[in-house]
């Protein structure tokens, strides 16, 4: 895994991922943009930044020992032991079949022993973690339908082969894609809390640095990771700290008002955008070590919280984030 802190520039992309890691309720990140900008690298690197979580070893659903439904028998055992485990970042590969997403009858047990038992799918594995979809706009429609349903309810309900299983599936969706491959369904777009337009930079120094680091990583990934582990550790502590302080961050009424004005001026649908904007601003303030949300926090996260919620005008050439920027300048 390429270290997160070794990714050159692309500050907005990194910021969005960090914010999503601080406050899961924001609802994930969509990275849309040019090829060769390190979108997938950043998302896959996120895994090593996430602070560990407590779970019962062997539990296929990574269930929270404290509060979740216990289907698997691991967690309901009287003398279960819990342990700190890495937060899962599960890749949803293209070409995945439905049975592997939601889980199905265990094929080996069915064939060899003629037994019926549930083999949990990727949604179970992603519980309490992140579900990553590369080339999200190429995902087949019926898989998207499954994800939308589960993402909304936080629970996976399987009814097939005479099995009836219900298990927690609360995951943060992270997607990446290239707009040239086609547009995203609005329903899916809406599920992503934050969206970032990732652009290539024309800075020679930065680009040379990208190549050098990539090369160093490919030659000796272990040494490279070691070299960056301190920087990654700093980021990880920042996330932990921000999570702890999240509830204490103050948010003044005038900022709430600003957020409302901004959303109104942009004509975003519903209150979802406003809510996301405020949450993201709060998480960002926590990450920056501030006591209260300031105007600059709001301003910095506004494009990523709102740009994908604008009512689309397909004939407007300017990018959505440029439109947000325009309104920001008018209103602030």
């Amino acid at each position: 895994m390429f270290p997160f802190s070794a990714i050159v520039a692309q500050d907005e992309m990194k910021r969005a991922l960090m914010i999503a890691a601080v406050d899961r309720s924001i609802g994930g990140v969509l990275l849309f943009g040019d090829r060769g900008t390190g979108k997938s690298t950043a998302i896959r690197a996120l895994a090593s930044l996430l602070p560990k979580m407590r779970a019962v070893p062997g539990c296929p659903y990574n269930a929270d020992p404290e509060c979740e439904l216990h289907e698997c028998g691991f967690c309901s055992a009287p003398k279960r032991k819990t342990r700190l485990m890495p937060v899962p970042v599960v890749d949803l590969p293209l070409g995945v079949t439905e049975d592997r997403v939601v889980g199905a009858l265990d094929i080996e047990k069915a064939l060899v022993h003629g037994q019926k038992s549930f083999d949990p799918g990727l949604l179970a594995r992603a519980n309490r973690g992140f579900l990553y979809i590369d080339e999200v706009n190429l995902l087949e429609d019926h898989i998207v339908d499954l994800l939308l349903d589960v993402a909304a309810s936080g629970e996976n309900l399987v009814e097939r082969e005479g099995l009836s299983v219900r298990h927690p599936a609360r995951f943060v969706l992270v997607g990446s894609g290239n707009p040239e491959e086609g547009e995203l369904r609005p329903q899916l777009l809406d599920r992503f809390g934050l969206a970032v337009d990732v652009k290539t930079s024309a800075d020679v120094k930065g680009r040379v640095e990208v190549i050098k680091r990539r090369d160093a990583y490919e030659r000796n990934d272990e040494a490279f990771r070691k070299k960056w582990s301190r920087a990654d550790g700093t980021l990880r502590r920042k996330i932990v700290k921000a999570r702890e302080r999240l509830e204490e961050i103050e948010l003044g009424d005038e900022l709430l008002e600003k957020a409302a004005v901004l959303c109104m001026a942009l004509g975003t649908d519903g209150s979802r955008g406003e809510l996301t904007l405020i949450r993201a601003a709060r998480a960002y303030a926590a990450l920056s070590g501030a006591e209260a949300v300031a105007l600059e926090h709001l301003r910095d996260v506004a494009p990523m919280a709102l740009s994908h919620r604008l009512r689309r005008n397909p004939l407007d050439d300017s990018s959505a984030s440029a439109r947000v920027q325009r309104v920001l300048e008018q209103e602030f």
Binding site: G95, T97, D99, I107, D119, D134, L138
Partner: peptide, 25 residues
Amino acid sequence: DDGAATIVAQALDTGSVRVERDGLA
């Protein structure tokens, strides 16, 4: 088609194929 092309592209990126099909992982 785009799907197949993307699968090949991902194999190039990661040096591996991930199979999550027909009850196999």
